[in-house]
Design a protein around this nucleic acid. Structure first.
Length: 577
DNA sequence: GCCGTTTTCGGCCCGACTGTTTTCAGTCG
């Protein structure tokens, strides 16, 4: 039985929830939650580690006990403690924790006093007015529960990073225009560059916090105000996204920005360092007793605790503190490092702009090369190109290249990988191209073994240079197809070809974890827009964010290379003369 | 349940807001 790291994380998370409701030792609960988080951001399969008899207690936050439980779950799919807790408490009970305003104490009370075990029962009890008769619960809590349960479907909703940007930017612009604000920034998971965000956290400094918060609460896009105090307020926008705003004095801005950027795990780790010096770190600054040592900027805090500045995208407590201590922080890739783009479409297939329009726009943006990679014939729906179509486009590109000044167009194709791993165009035409990008667009539900073999075989094609959007997922819409990504990464290494990080905000494929794994294996990543219009070149920023979360440096990214170096690398990937 | 350059035992991050309370527990980030 195949057990993924995420499956084990789910078991640990459920154990933590149920122990929490039971009122168990909070530090024991934290150990399970930390372990779940660690497993979710670990690329190598722990099941494989178990099979190889590796010592799991090498993993951060895993001791003898949790190592044994991981081995147990990896072998049987469950563990004795989980089963025991499920007998003791209704297994669905922990789902009540997802209702805002309900924590472990209240869930326990609801279960013990009213035998409420499910969201349906909770809704019933709230509707019948039973909840507000319980001590500690009032009319308003009851109403809040009712609203939350009814909105349950949309409640846990997360928003793609591009949507968050669309909603957040106008709000920040509005607040800046209010003249009540000094410094202001969107913090939280948005600033760390996550693929999706649950809410937006805005941090601002202001000489008049009350007026700024009033301006915030009366923003046109606000649907309702959840809370409104003297230093913070929370609202929900019409689109359903929650926005929290925190206002501090100028001297505390850096501390607040760091605090609200998170992640929580990173903050705890940093705070422990402060604590070891007998200092205190909170959102107002770094303090020795009453004396403020730092806080006006993030770098002042890092410097005071003896660390170099850590970029927001690294702040997940995935080794950045240790790397900072050792002076081994990566110099993260940034958008100015990108010299070109190896994946773009035109009106020849499903793009919305012509070849010329795409070329001119890429040139205007300062790229020095752009690979044109329309779809291949199999995708009839989007007018995929056959040999003849590709041939015509090759001639067109030759003519256009004569005209272009600072940009070189590369001849390419996004060729479909057939179910058997063969490519969707004859070798004769593929050999004429500068860059062949292979992609899976069909048969998503093959078994893990067959899907992996299919892709490995495609990578063995002598012309294939780049594997596009390797997991095939669509964020919040479609799960990745089941593949052994580590095998694919290692195969790319052996074969000398490259993997793509597709920068479309609904793909961001590879994930940060797999970027890390690719880097570790020495496989170069190409950060591509997969542009279907000239506007889509903007998406590169999201790809850069994802790459930075994956600790990628300029040297780890294929398309940071100047054109000549790129051509050398691409011809190296090609196994035929 | 984990962890250790004060520790193998005794620690484990910190503050704001809400609601139901009359001084604070629970929740959230």
């Amino acid at each position: 039985m195949l057990v993924h790291n995420a499956d084990i994380a789910v078991v640990f998370q459920e154990i933590a929830d149920l122990l929490d409701i039971k009122g168990d030792n909070p530090f024991r609960i934290r150990a399970y939650r930390n372990a779940a988080r660690m497993l979710n951001s670990l690329a190598p399969s722990v099941q494989a580690m178990v099979n190889d008899k590796r010592d799991l207690s090498e993993l951060a936050g895993i001791g003898a006990d949790l190592a044994a439980k991981i081995a147990e779950i990896a072998t049987t799919g469950t563990c004795a403690l989980s089963e025991e807790l499920r007998r003791e408490l209704p297994p669905a009970l922990h789902k009540l924790l997802s209702v805002p305003g309900l924590g472990p104490k209240r869930v326990k009370t609801l279960y013990q006093q009213c035998h409420i075990e499910t969201l349906q029962q909770l809704a019933e009890a709230a509707r019948s007015g039973q909840i507000c008769t319980i001590p500690g619960f009032g009319k308003r809590t009851e109403q809040r529960i009712l609203d939350a349960v009814q909105a349950q479907l949309s409640k846990s909703e997360r928003f793609r990073i591009d949507i968050a940007l669309q909603l957040g930017e106008p709000l920040v612009a509005y607040l800046k225009a209010s003249k009540e604000v000094g410094r202001i920034e969107i913090a939280g998971s948005f600033r760390r560059g996550l693929e999706t965000v649950g809410d937006l956290d805005i941090v601002a400094s202001s000489p008049s916090p009350a007026r700024l918060l009033r301006a915030f609460a009366s923003f046109d896009g606000v649907d309702r105000v959840l809370s409104h105090g003297s230093t913070r307020a929370s609202v929900v926008l019409h689109q359903g996204m929650q926005v929290d705003m925190r206002v501090v004095a100028e001297v505390s801005f850096g501390a607040a920005l760091h605090y609200f950027t998170g992640s929580k795990a990173h903050n705890i780790a940093v705070r422990k360092i402060a604590q070891a010096q007998d200092w205190k770190l909170n959102e107002y600054g770094l303090f020795s007793g009453e004396r403020r040592i730092a806080g006006e900027s993030e770098s002042s805090i890092f410097e005071a605790i003896g660390l170099p500045y850590i970029e927001p995208e690294l702040r997940e407590n995935r080794g950045e503190i240790e790397a900072a201590r050792a002076g081994r922080l990566p110099q993260l890739v940034s958008q100015v490092d990108l010299k070109g783009d190896l994946h773009a479409h035109t009106t020849a297939s499903d793009g919305r702009n012509t070849l010329r329009e795409m070329a001119m726009d890429a040139q205007r943006r300062g790229l020095s090369y752009l690979a044109i990679t329309d779809h291949s014939q199999r995708l009839r729906l989007v007018h995929g190109l056959d040999s003849e179509g590709v041939s015509r486009q090759i001639d067109e590109i030759d003519r256009l290249n004569d005209e272009l000044e600072s940009l070189t167009l590369l001849k390419g194709i996004e060729v479909d990988i057939n179910e058997d791993g063969s490519l969707d165009l004859p070798d004769a035409i593929l050999r004429r191209l500068d860059v062949v990008v292979g992609a899976v667009h069909s048969n998503f539900d093959l078994s893990r073994e067959r899907q992996t073999e299919r892709i490995l075989r495609a990578m063995d094609h002598p012309c294939l240079a780049l594997l596009a959007h390797p997991s095939g997922r669509l964020i919040l819409q479609r799960q990745p197809y089941d593949v052994d990504m580590l095998r694919i990464i290692r195969h790319a290494r052996q074969r000398g070809c490259f993997l793509e990080l597709d920068a479309q905000p609904d793909r961001l494929d590879l994930t940060d974890i797999n970027c890390m794994a690719a880097k570790q294996e020495g496989v170069l990543i190409s950060i591509d827009s997969d542009a279907h219009s000239t506007f889509d070149f903007d998406h590169l920023r999201f790809g850069i964010g994802q790459a930075r979360r994956g600790w990628l440096e300029k040297k780890d990214v294929l398309n940071t290379r100047p054109l000549d170096d790129l051509k050398t690398l691409l011809s190296g990937a090609r196994m035929v003369p």
